[in-house]
Write a protein that binds this DNA or RNA. Structure first.
Lengths: 127, 127
DNA sequence: CCGTATCCGCATGGATACTG
DNA sequence: CAGTATCCATGCGGATACGG
């Protein structure tokens, strides 16, 4: 193994950016249940603005992770659905969700310990 | 399954934020090789500023994901190493890295297709 | 209904200088 | 060596208004 992951343009960094995107994974997670329309997605994802939904959907479509289909009804109807390429990502989201639920308690406990230690006098170092 | 993942304060969102952090996972990845000192880390992670390294290390320590040990040498020596809690995260990073390397080509191809389609006249919708 | 366009506040994060 | 403190540019992202 080389230092590959530490080049700013490496594959891992790019995917990490996608995963780190504030809304992208949440959208994929909702679409994993079933295809949805724009305002349906909007309602299901708490706190997302119209701008960010539109913007994120576009970038996901560009990356081939979702498919956008517009029907010329009046008014127009648009459906978004997962593309096959997104399957692996959804699988990882499952793992992440499971880990999160299993270990968030540990993390919160660590935070309490850390924050508490600041009062009791600076964190003990070793000699 | 309920809509749990769509509450802004749910476990998954919190972990997603951690994973999405621009530097956190990169740091964990480097520390997964072996424990490192501050400036050693700095050199190994391309493009990180002193401020962000310090800040991210502190938050990782607070979350119980890494352990900081200071030795009272002159000048002082500080070593960072992975905490057991980080193991699951490292495992997921492996999966993410593998997926990234396997599918980045597909993503880039999709982008070319998408960007190219913009010229040839707006993206074809269906009736 | 499905977006795009614009304005703008605010946090993120880099550069730089300084300390134990 | 291992940070902390400060300043400041940039850009993310929310609110709002408008268009197809």
């Amino acid at each position: 193994m080389n230092g590959d992951a530490f080049d700013p343009n490496c594959p891992t960094r790019q995917i990490l950016d996608r995963i780190g995107d504030k809304w992208a994974m949440l959208i994929l997670l909702v679409l994993a249940q079933q295809p949805r329309r724009f305002n349906d997605l909007r309602r299901r994802i708490g706190g997302i603005s119209q701008k960010m939904l539109s913007q994120t959907l576009k970038s996901l479509e560009r990356d081939g992770l979702i498919v956008r289909t517009a029907f010329a009804t009046v008014p127009v109807t648009v459906e978004y659905r997962l593309a096959p390429l997104a399957d692996g990502l959804i699988g990882m989201m499952g793992a992440i969700t499971a880990w999160a639920e299993a270990h968030l308690g540990d993390i919160e406990a660590a935070r309490v310990r850390y924050d508490g230690a600041r009062d009791a006098s600076a964190p003990r170092d070793f000699a």
